[in-house]
């Protein structure tokens, strides 16, 4: 049971990065369907940086650098993807869906390329990411559940909490939400809509990128053998599931993680039925989506101008 919870948390946190990033992006009115690609690119950049560092450092590896360098590279890679997306959708006014899907194609290509070229060689780097807090073992199951995780897990929670705070309790958050809800009003209030959309998308993509890194380095222990775009789509599902609230995302992501791996921990589930269990996160999301649209409670709806472009009226 403890092992199940620990696993669910570890998997859930990779979703959490993605969903927090996508929530921030969507709050600005951008429905970025490139998130799976962004997470792939994030993972690729981080892994590649780790590979370079470990190669360069040979035996004198600084654990802190071994974690920090890939994280920075991932953030950079993710932000760059966000920049491309924003440039195309805001500056060049392209269709958001088409741009996002193209970025996914591109990102999946990049990560597949990485897998094929460098394969599952990241387990060496992975141990720096999965290092638990030293006192975790002394605290029994409690320690296992709360303190046995690698740094990225705590980072995910921290980012989700900070994002939630920024979105609901700061002026920047207020402005950002107004951009996603009603850009014309935001514009009239003197808010630079384009700048907010650029910033939110780049920051959101950078965070989402970390999800890719976390999945490869933490959850897979560096054994990167298959494409990870599925976690991107789960992250998008999670945004809906948590009705665009990053703090709910912490619980939501653990629920998703649990649903995703539940089949392996329940005895008596056939090999085949496990696949049906993996369907659950999507089914649950669909139910939530339909349910919120029926209830039509304004607070739980997608940002009103999600997916819509905004240009100041042409006269």
């Amino acid at each position: 049971m403890v092992a199940f919870i620990v696993s669910a948390i570890r998997l859930g946190m990779t979703f959490l990065f993605g969903s927090t990033g996508e929530t921030i992006t969507e709050k600005s009115g951008h429905l970025n369907l490139g998130i799976p690609g962004v997470m792939c690119v994030g993972a690729s950049c981080g892994c590649f940086a780790e590979y370079l560092y470990l190669t360069a450092a040979k035996r004198s590896v600084e654990p802190i650098l071994a974690v920090l360098i890939p994280i920075l590279a991932t953030l950079l890679g993710g932000a760059l993807m966000g920049l491309i997306y924003s440039f195309l959708t805001v500056t060049l006014r392209c269709n958001q869906n088409v741009t996002g899907l193209t970025l996914t194609t591109f990102g999946v290509g990049v990560s597949d390329f990485m897998i094929a070229k460098t394969g599952a060689i990241y387990s060496k780097g992975s141990k720096y990411f999965t290092a638990a807090l030293p006192f975790a073992d002394d605290l029994g199951w409690f320690g296992k559940i709360f303190f046995s995780h690698g740094i990225l897990i705590y980072l995910a929670i921290a980012i989700a909490l900070i994002s939630s705070f920024v979105l609901s309790k700061t002026r920047i958050g207020l402005n950002l939400r107004s951009v996603g809800e009603n850009p014309a009003t935001a514009d009239a209030a003197g808010i630079n809509v384009a700048r907010y959309r650029y910033m939110a998308t780049c920051i959101g993509c950078a965070i989402a990128g970390l999800g890719g890194l976390s999945f490869v380095m933490d959850y897979l222990h560096g054994n990167w053998e298959y494409c990870i775009d599925a976690i991107g789509w789960l992250a998008i599902a999670l945004v809906i599931f948590t009705v665009w609230k990053p703090n709910l995302g912490i619980i939501g992501s653990i629920v998703f993680g649990a649903l995703y791996i539940a089949s392996s921990y329940i005895t008596g589930v056939s090999f085949a039925s496990k696949e049906l269990f993996k369907m659950l996160p999507y089914i649950v999301t669909i139910v939530v989506l339909i349910f919120t649209s029926i209830r039509d409670k304004k607070e739980n709806q997608p940002p009103q101008s999600l997916g819509l472009p905004y240009f100041r009226e042409e006269r």
Binding site: G37, I84, L88, T99, T102, L103, T105, F106, G107, V108, G109, V110, S111, D112, F113, I115, A116, K117
Partner: peptide, 15 residues
């Protein structure tokens, strides 16, 4: 080169 090259290229050209 890995086959994934084609996805990368297609992505770039589409962009």
């Amino acid at each position: 080169m890995p086959n994934a090259l084609s996805d990368i290229v297609t992505g770039i050209i589409l962009l």
